[in-house]
Design a binder for these strands. Structure first.
Lengths: 333, 333
DNA sequence: TAAAAATACTCCATAGGTATTTTAT
DNA sequence: ATAAAATACCTATGGAGTATTTTTA
């Protein structure tokens, strides 16, 4: 007989009879009628090919062989109960492990804030943090190695869902002696790509900076492997760059460089939380994104408070984005 | 949710999906249709309050939390399978442990023969042997401490079933110099209860002997605590006794005493195998009794070969016995 | 005779089937 | 466009109920 045909309820019935030594009382304990319980015990005995109980109108007792079966039945039911308990714990929202990735130009500056806020609001949520490029993170996400990632738009979202978190403005960071450092709010048009220091290929920040400065002449001269190196290069007077707000605050090298806001209010990047749209925890992730939005760190603009600050998109990609947004909303809303 | 509402079959379905990573293939593996499997997985996820799988048309995979559930599902199913395996082994007829009791005046002389024959015919049947008086054995039997007993009729059989095994004749055992020892086949009427040595109260052999000699004059003079002592008392010339056939054979003291058959062919006792009539193994016990009958030891009369050799019963008890016999037959036949 | 299990039957919830639709790549 | 899961709808098995009978101490 295949194991699937065995009924856990029947095992419960059998144990109740063993405990009560009485079919009627056992039936009461199981909240079923006596004939129902009798019938199911018979069926079970038939399935097992042996009698579990020795019964008369005066005495009901497990047979010697029945005892063996009943002991194992207790084991089976205990393990089944354990499974239900596990499900109960696992199904508590905003608990367990959340494997979160963030792009390298955001993570180091945002994670401390995020960890603190998350632990305070959701103490039973354990974060496992990773950093990488957008491409790396998306791949890990699709493979199921990560649950969510924080990245900057635009991102190829097929099969994914997202919720924007905040808009992070870019600042012009230049050596104090550089002419641009004397302006209160330089324009994007005043940027020379010849003097622009960028991250190496693969970082979305590089692409976004170039996108903002597209139309400006010349080619790139230098690139750095990380934001920290970039800061040191600027401090050394080797050029200037557009850097995201969170990498600016509380910085020791601030005396060496000038930080200036850009005139264009949409010079920056939209940070979003992204997850697999079929992930069973989609609702929780959307909720988490809204939570992060409400706890946006100083220096960024929480999406709700933004007037026009959205990343520039081509008409086509904008339409696509709206469409996806709508679809996602109907799903996770 | 109560544990009884959980379905082992659903757990199998879930594991099949996890293994196949494909609902259709999993359905094939489980020999059900894809919609059936889909539906049951949904129901299971509903019961657990959480999604086990993350699925799209291209990819089906267990979610992180689902993995935990699936692991436990394997444990539950393994234990359930173990229960079925145990049942399969336990339900093999004539195997396992048989707790068998016999009256003290039979056991020591019959058990060696019985053990040998049983082990040869039913090698997977393990015998646990006990001795005692009829009353002690019946009590143990009713309490479920024994499975079967070998006793001499008559016995109060309410709630019990029995199958006769053999008729064991009594022999007159007397000191060689005693007058009765000179007769070839003494009659019961020639027995003097004054000279009769008996076992102490509680032994059915004592009662049966007295019953055979009822009507004979006088009271009892001496009694012994066991058959062996009785033999020594006879050898010492202290009296004579009626002793069962199996206690006679292969005896060292035979030179000191004379053993004479009694003229009456029904002077003896009917040995029967008795068990609780509601014992699930009743059929096996009846079969075992017939087996013992077919392997009756030398010196006794297998029931089938008996012409008139039945214990004397009053008309009333005889009727009762016939009635019980009939009832039992319809049950175990 | 009384207490208890077994049986007879009726009902309906649901596992399972087929046909079809929706969805995502 | 296609493959796959989900949905809709139907059927039938069997779990559960009530009423009754059988059993045994």
């Amino acid at each position: 007989m295949p194991v699937g045909t065995l009924s856990l309820r029947d095992l419960e019935y059998a144990l109740a009879v063993a405990r009560q030594r009485h079919f009627g009382k056992a039936a009461d304990a199981c909240h079923v009628s006596q004939p129902t319980l009798s019938g199911q015990i018979h069926k079970l005995e038939e399935q097992l090919g042996m009698a579990i109980f020795e019964r008369s109108t005066r005495r009901v007792a497990a047979s010697v062989r029945g005892e063996t079966i009943l002991q194992q039945a207790e084991v089976v039911l205990a393990e089944a109960q354990r499974l239900l308990d596990m499900a109960k714990h696992l199904s508590v929202p905003m608990s367990g492990i959340l494997r979160l990735g963030a792009i390298a130009t955001l993570g180091p500056y945002y994670f401390p804030h995020l960890l603190h806020a998350t632990h305070k609001a959701y103490p039973s949520l354990a974060l496992r943090l990773t950093e990488g490029t957008t491409a790396e993170l998306i791949q890990s996400l699709r493979r199921g190695e990560l649950d969510c990632i924080l990245a900057a738009l635009p991102v190829n979202l097929s099969g994914l869902a997202m919720q924007t978190v905040f808009f992070e403005p870019f600042f012009l960071v230049a050596p104090v002696q550089h002419p641009l450092a004397h302006r209160v709010a330089p324009t994007l048009a005043s940027i020379r790509t010849r003097e622009l220091l960028l991250l190496e290929e693969g970082h979305c920040l590089r692409d976004q900076t170039l996108q903002l400065c597209r139309g400006n002449s010349s080619s790139v001269q230098r690139h750095a492997t990380g934001l920290e190196t970039l800061w040191h290069m600027i401090a050394a007077g080797e050029g200037y760059s557009l850097l995201p707000a969170l990498s600016v605050v509380k910085r020791a090298t601030l005396g060496m460089v000038a930080v200036r806001p850009l005139l264009e209010s949409d010079a920056g990047r939209m940070i979003t939380l992204i997850w697999r749209n079929r992930d069973p925890r989609s609702r929780e992730f959307a909720q988490y994104a809204r939570f992060l939005q409400s706890k946006a760190p100083a220096g960024v603009l929480a999406e709700a408070t933004l007037p026009t600050a959205r990343p520039r998109l081509t008409p086509k990609s904008e339409a696509l984005h709206a469409q996806r947004q709508k679809r996602k909303d109907s799903r996770v809303g």
